[in-house]
Amino acid sequence: MNQMLRFGLILGLICAAATLVLAVTYEVTKPKIEDQLKKEESAALAKVVMPGADTFTEKTLDGVEYLEAFKNKRLVGYCIRATGTGYSGYIRMLVGIDLSSTIKGVSILEHSETPGLGAKINEVRPKEEEPYFLRQFKGKQAYSIELKKDVDAITGATISSKAVSDAIRDTVNKFLAKMKDEKGL
């Protein structure tokens, strides 16, 4: 019993020391990490998804997550989080639409498509700023967007391309329906 107590004490001491060290490190790095995350997200938002907007507020509506985008305190559109099922996992993206549901920009936050094939949905050509596949979506009507009609699929990666366009259309439709319900009430 005495021995058990000694073991526990030593292990406890080491754990306590480790906790202390980690707490200090966490406090030191925390502001920096949060800063980085915010910088990344708002950069993506303001530059790619909703060019021109300056402030965003996070909202949820019946399971659809979105951000309201403001320019000079006036509502100019929504950035909706959409998830598509790609070739080898989920494709998470952010779709910016204005008040008439025209697409302002699309940004892929996370995907695990095959490098060199499906991953081309997020590929930027040399000397260009944004992915060539996603650029096609700009200015199209979000609720009726159709692969091979409004946007060209990537050669050899139809499944990944379709996942993106379908997710955008379906999520925006769901969002618009929910908004209608909301306003109707």
Binding site: Y26, T29, K32, I33, Q36
Partner: peptide, 10 residues
């Protein structure tokens, strides 16, 4: 964890 946090921050 220290390495992970510092990498995330910097």
């Amino acid at each position: 964890t220290i390495a992970d946090l510092f990498m995330k921050a910097y």
